[in-house]
Design a protein around this nucleic acid. Structure first.
Lengths: 188, 188
DNA sequence: TTCGGCATGTAACGGGTTACATGATTGA
DNA sequence: TCAATCATGTAACCCGTTACATGCCGAA
């Protein structure tokens, strides 16, 4: 049972072998914009992943007072990452969605399309829920109070979900271009 | 030193006196869309707030095996909530921003404008950071890999921040209308 | 009669953040 | 010489989630 952080590290190492220190740096910026972790989490997690044979390390010359360990992902690690990315998970939070999209490079563009389509569907459902809620609270409240501010946050939620759906569409379009495939049923 | 959850409860109780159970229900839906908490957090937090004299409870007849306690916020509690909302906090996460906007009803519309303007400024700065990052990674990558997915998440971040800024503008406009005031310097 | 909602509380667990600890090299 | 970067690790603490515990009432 590997955690989200575990899969994050697997993904970063799949892109390029790194030291724990280096992973910590990537998890501040730019990955840190949507997923972060401190080195105190990373080092123990790397040890755990190595115990599960999902990563391996070699000692290289370095500047620190301890050994410098360069980690790389194993074949089993790549499989674990793929399995996690392909698993349909309906109830993931927004940060994890961004993380998963970032890690999609571990799949083929064709496989990635399916994942993003599931994400899109999730947002479509949430949007429906918000719209239903809005029609309940709607009666153009004139008095200053919780109804007004509640409405403001609901409006944000609606704008957010609409934005996400558009973004999913553009990512899906890009992915289809990259998988070299025409959309199924096209005749050009 | 009252926590975010503490201020959330203060805010909900400022809107209407409630039992802990009722607060837990509100923190699932609709407030739960952006801020959630389980009852196991809420009951101890209510006890702490009462210790600080920010809330008070009265025992009412109820259905449970234990006493049913109806909480209401004290004058000191209202002051604490106002102080927290008015404090300039640059480094708050997105969920907390939504929460703060939801709780703005505890301020006057005129005061609320200032808070939302600070939020807007924060998003403007973050957007600038993202745009700077994007121009670095920009060279229309053709190869499938981390650069493509990283770009996709950056694009989301940009769309998100732009959406937030627009939302802030519309909230500010609404707030100004409600505070009955012309924007400072207007001559009509 | 059994299930779900009301109603409160404690305990255990897991993950994230902060602080402590060590120490060489490089540039201002 | 002083600060920052590289580099790894542990310990304490806080917060949120899940599970345990209790028990009445109304509806199906």
């Amino acid at each position: 049972m590997t955690t989200t952080l575990g899969h994050t590290l697997l993904g970063l190492l799949a892109a390029r072998p790194s030291t724990g220190y280096d992973l910590a740096r990537q998890l501040r910026r730019p990955v840190g914009y949507f997923w972060s972790a401190g080195h105190s989490q990373i080092y123990p997690e790397l040890a755990r992943l190595e115990g599960d044979r999902l990563v391996r390390h070699t000692v290289v010359a370095g500047a620190g007072p301890r050994e410098t360990k360069r980690y790389r992902v194993t074949a089993a690690g790549r499989r674990a990452l793929r399995t996690w990315l392909l698993a349909t998970t309906p109830e993931v939070d927004d940060r994890e969605i961004l993380l998963r999209v970032y890690l999609l490079f571990a799949l083929s563009p064709a496989e990635a399309v399916g994942v993003v389509e599931a994400v899109r569907e999730h947002h479509r459902r949430t949007l429906g829920e918000y719209l239903a809620n809005r029609s309940v609270v709607d009666p153009t409240t004139r008095d200053w109070g919780p109804d007004v501010t509640s409405r403001a946050t609901l409006d944000w939620g609606i704008a957010f979900e609409e934005g996400r759906i558009q973004w999913c569409d553009s990512v899906i379009a890009d992915l289809r271009r990259r998988s070299g495939g025409m959309p199924p049923g096209s005749a050009t």
